[in-house]
Amino acid sequence: MVILEFFLVLIGITALGLLYGGIARKWSARIQRRYGPPFYQNFLDVFKLLGKKNTKSHGVMFALGPVIAFTGIILSLFFLPLGNSRPLLSFEGDIFVLFYLLVIAPLGMALGAGEAANPNATIGIARGLTLMLGYELIFFLSAIAVMVKFNTASLWKIVEIQGTFPKWNLFPFFLSAFAGLIALQGMMGEKPFDLIVAPHEIASGPMVEYNGKYLGLLQLYHAIAIVVETGLFVNVFLGGGSILTFILKTFFVFMLAVTIDNIMPRFRIGQAVKFYWKYPLIISLLGILVVFIWR
């Protein structure tokens, strides 16, 4: 029964992710004064990619890269509470496990793209990993403020404590939530932190050598990653409520990120990391300070 429930969740989240992608493309098209593709366009893209023939691969690791990426993101689905439904595998300290699991996917893609022996791919990965030095720390600091306050490291318990609307963590931990939102922008690779896949500079970065079915797998990974990352933020700061409210909240957070994505150019990688270590770091530290004073 658990297996069936998990497959349901997996397919549902993938469809949700692709739906978010389609609506985001329509939304940014509207900002750019045009109509944009049908909302189900991402589904078509994935089907087309999976249907491609004689995809070219550079070796075993190149082929396994997207598979590991997909594994990593499916794994993190196990630990993510969707609204008020308890996740399949929830135990104490699973926020730390989740943080480390969220790293498996980029690492898998990085190993695969490394095998492609293309400098564009490796520069993209070096930028991605350096950016991780920026946003992972900020997200962790903003999450740790909540964890220390409720003295728990279980995502599920934090969701339970928050309950319905007025008791969200957003209001008591406003500073940490704000820093978390900036970190989320980098985690999802939206502009101004869109350095990993900058087409003009490094010809779509790590994806430069991926074609056909591998690219389809990466698109699926990206779709689930959107839901998982926004879901993580929603659970920590906007928790509680039924699955429907969870979907609405993740949708709203993602749309906020996409809107910012449309009005900002890209950082240079040096500027992006320095930006993260300047303002968001101070904001998250203030957030922690607030927790100490307030406790």
Partner: peptide, 11 residues
């Protein structure tokens, strides 16, 4: 476009 601000090329 080179800077990544894709709204301006559209406009």
């Amino acid at each position: 476009g080179a800077l990544g601000l894709y709204t301006i090329p559209q406009w």
